[in-house]
Design a protein around this nucleic acid. Sequence first.
DNA 1: CCGCGCTATGCAAGCGCTTGCAAGGCTCTA
DNA 2: TAGAGCCTTGCAAGCGCTTGCATAGCGCGG
Lengths: 331, 331
Amino acid sequence: METTRSPRLEEVALEAGVSTATVSRYLNSPERVALATRERIRVAVEAIGYLPNLNAGALAGNRSRLIAVLVPDIAQSIFNDTVEAMIDELARDGNSVVLALTGSDNRRLTAEIDMALARRVDAIILTGIVTEEAVRKRLEAASMTVIETWGLPENPIDVAVGFSHRAAGEELARFLRSRGYRKPHLVVPRSARSQRRASGFITRWVAEGGEEPTRLEVNVPSHFGQGRLSFRGLSELSERPDVVVCGSDWIAQGLIVEAHAAGIRVPDQLAVTGFGNLRLAGDMRPTITSVDIDGAHIAREVMRVLRARANNLEIEARIDVGFRIIARESA
Amino acid sequence: METTRSPRLEEVALEAGVSTATVSRYLNSPERVALATRERIRVAVEAIGYLPNLNAGALAGNRSRLIAVLVPDIAQSIFNDTVEAMIDELARDGNSVVLALTGSDNRRLTAEIDMALARRVDAIILTGIVTEEAVRKRLEAASMTVIETWGLPENPIDVAVGFSHRAAGEELARFLRSRGYRKPHLVVPRSARSQRRASGFITRWVAEGGEEPTRLEVNVPSHFGQGRLSFRGLSELSERPDVVVCGSDWIAQGLIVEAHAAGIRVPDQLAVTGFGNLRLAGDMRPTITSVDIDGAHIAREVMRVLRARANNLEIEARIDVGFRIIARESA
DNA sequence: CCGCGCTATGCAAGCGCTTGCAAGGCTCTA
DNA sequence: TAGAGCCTTGCAAGCGCTTGCATAGCGCGG
């Protein structure tokens, strides 16, 4: 583990016969350095094998190029596509992502936010809406770029990039109604988002003359196994539903597998919808009708926000990326 | 976005009537500060709402408390459990994780390694073994803590925490042989790890008197849809296998679904095994026989390595966390 | 009552960059 | 040919911490 200290900017400057200021400029905004000088520095950097010390840069420049991304989990997360797309985009711009896990625990959320602030990250990206008031306050007090994704609250802490879960629920209700279903049953994960969708669904469904749907709540994160359990729960209902609206594709998938095992044909005897349009939704047999959220789109909008902020430009506080119902075989 | 600069160590020191050195010590090793002083500083920190600037700390202390974790992807990754467990453990120790995505592209891997070095991370954690020589060299040259996980190479770059994929393959061969299967078919993702397992399986299978298994290669990351495709591929074989050894639980799951759709009973007419023992393996119908890798165990060992390094203690270069075959209904 | 060995604290020199300011050198116009 | 204006570069003052070294205070044995 004994190493000679890694080369500093100064060594490069010496080698190239310029000042450290010029090398710094070359590294951060090459267009401000004359072409010939650029080349000399390039050669020097190469020769020395110089790698800048980003911590020093962050301190001096008050810009860390570090973005905190806070998610509940990654083992079983509907956000993974979005997070992956964001990390890709951010890396392309020379940023690094500090990924922090919050579970569904506000204490952990708070702790991770403090950590992010201590790191002086350039922005904090949250998946989901922050409901807890204390957390909101803390974030607002920091007066930094905070991006809430996947949700679209009335009053974002700073900026929100997402879609209306309520609208998604309503749209789904309309869709199923138009397909002639009569008796939906909702399987709703205990997250603010899912609850909102369910609420939208019910409102719309009833408004269109349907009778109040039955519902079952399940824990988050939702997973395949819950689908199976949910199916069993159906037998306890006084009347069997004709369509089960699941809070995630995993639940839908599990439910379909269990239905088949019980000899029930999907969608003939029981229709099913999922949410998230994970890859498996299109691969499942039958393919699963789902609601698609374009993670790459969210990532691009997040980048747009970040770039706007970097250039002191104005940006909308609420960016709607929408959603699409993907009609497939299961409903 | 106009803010007054956030409070510095000095303000806290002033408020508490001590020097910045003492506050710094309080923050980093409280036991070195007298009890009464401790309390005064605690109150001052609280009153001021002080959050240390970790970038400054990293620069001054030559310790970033930043750990880079490099994975191919997270959208469809068998490592997610392990990564999640590592992030949890690391956060508990006051570290942050910089998550970088490398795909299966060596250029990206190299770029992300450089980024990690520029950040002066305290350690780099890789999932999977680094095969590319240039990358190895770069990492060795950095002479820092580098932990390769999930694999167990003969000569780790620095430290490896994982298991022998070859042994896992061999063990699976032995297991299936003992269960009386005669004609296995392998579905092998194009990753070094999977290839190694396949190779171990074949060697062992043949050594035990079996005939050379057939095999199908699939792209990484593997997913549910490939399972379905793999099933269809079976019909092209001259003789139908009695067990399909899949490179991941997702493939196994997809294959089972497709088999059912084709009216083939699993495991009666066709047995299936997965790999990774994801949650769904236990939830699937039939439940999937799989190979369990204990992500939390890997995470704990990684922490042990990190702590040993922090205290300049010796640590084994190869830490075997093993694997367990979980026999379930599907094979 | 002195000196030794601790413990608790302070002093101040960095850590390796970025950037505001200023100056030198050019080009171009009037 | 002088001045204006731009481009390029250097100077040097930080950015907010950590930590080696020095010092002060204290208890205690001789």
